[in-house]
Amino acid sequence: MVEVREGKKIRKVMVKSRSTINDILRELGYNREEVVVRLNGKIVAEEEELSRGDSIEVIRIVTGG
């Protein structure tokens, strides 16, 4: 299980072994082009693999205007 936070919204998501941030983003309906991800407080590439207990922060960067 990992925790995924976007603003005030927090979700707990089950992860399979060797799941990456990309897999989670896809599962939750995010486009990787439109977000930056912090894994346990550090900005990382979406290819990063996840471990149980990880905490992910999703920051939407596409704002427009």
Binding site: V36, I43, I59, I61, T63, G64, G65
Partner: peptide, 29 residues
Amino acid sequence: PEKEVAVYALLRKFKVHLAKCPYATGIHT
């Protein structure tokens, strides 16, 4: 790319306003 600008701004800890313009709709989006 927009994403790389965002990553750079976050890494440099610049103060930025991240919000969507209320008028941004239509074909652009």
